[in-house]
Design a protein around this nucleic acid. Sequence first.
DNA 1: TTTAAAGTCTACTAAATATATAGACAAACT
DNA 2: AGTTTGTCTATATATTTAGTAGACTTTAAA
Lengths: 154, 154
Amino acid sequence: MKISSKCEYACLALIYLAEHFGDGLVKIQSIASTKKIPKKFLEQILIVLKQRGYVKSKKGASGGYRLALPPDKITLAEVIRLMDGALAPVESVSKYFYEPTPIEQEERLLGVFREIRDYVAARLERITFRDLISGGRSGESGPRSGKKTARSSG
Amino acid sequence: MKISSKCEYACLALIYLAEHFGDGLVKIQSIASTKKIPKKFLEQILIVLKQRGYVKSKKGASGGYRLALPPDKITLAEVIRLMDGALAPVESVSKYFYEPTPIEQEERLLGVFREIRDYVAARLERITFRDLISGGRSGESGPRSGKKTARSSG
DNA sequence: TTTAAAGTCTACTAAATATATAGACAAACT
DNA sequence: AGTTTGTCTATATATTTAGTAGACTTTAAA
């Protein structure tokens, strides 16, 4: 799991949109300048987020973007997987992006990586964009609400 | 943290050398063919491991490589950091490889990544190459020996 | 003392990935 | 009609990854 700039930008944009959830449409330009994201790069990112259903847009003057879902319905895990692929450190050990890698035969090593994948996935799946905005509940306190032992790894 | 092929090869080579610890020198060629690693690539990797003091070598006919330390003195964390850099998902949150990234200002997000870094680092620092060879203790049972709450993150 | 078998060193290359940028086009509002 | 905003496709550039090539050095055995 290595987060790319593209993925960081996607998170920043979603945080911005989450902070303005309910306020109507916001323009790419204001996301870009507020969060310091190259505008044309951001456009491409937003299209991906739109295709996946996280945001909606409207064209034309007075157009813009908004979240398609409430911030607490979008998890960090989903967004990182969408932008960067597997959360696992090696694809041999990825549920959603499996691919053979050189260490394929080393069961001990794979076991370690599987464990890390499970932790990382579980942690990121518990974080939503509501947890990431100032004013939202903190990721430390809140997650007790909801399924307690849910371990949906990936 | 995304493990490169180079790093996977380094781990495979060290596992092989750990399996032959005490048996004298082994040739690059046998590591390469047993573990299916491109030989010339492996040469470069072994030089890095040698510079860092994990292996020793001898030139000439009947030359070869051996571990410079017992397998339980080399941790997975060290090797991954050496080959791939930071264990953290973003460098903003890396202890040993800090660098600013776009999410620099998002404290909530950084907090999540810091937590992941801490877990990953602590986990990988508890695994040694003794744990990774067949016949070695398993990474699940043994680590109780030694400092219990040691959280040397990075 | 030559020769062969190793490791060492430096350079190069090819492909993939990451990080954008450019510009024409389409829709919506005024 | 004209301006503003999002959309789409292509291109560009840089970096990283994953190797390959070949000359050089050291060691031991013939």
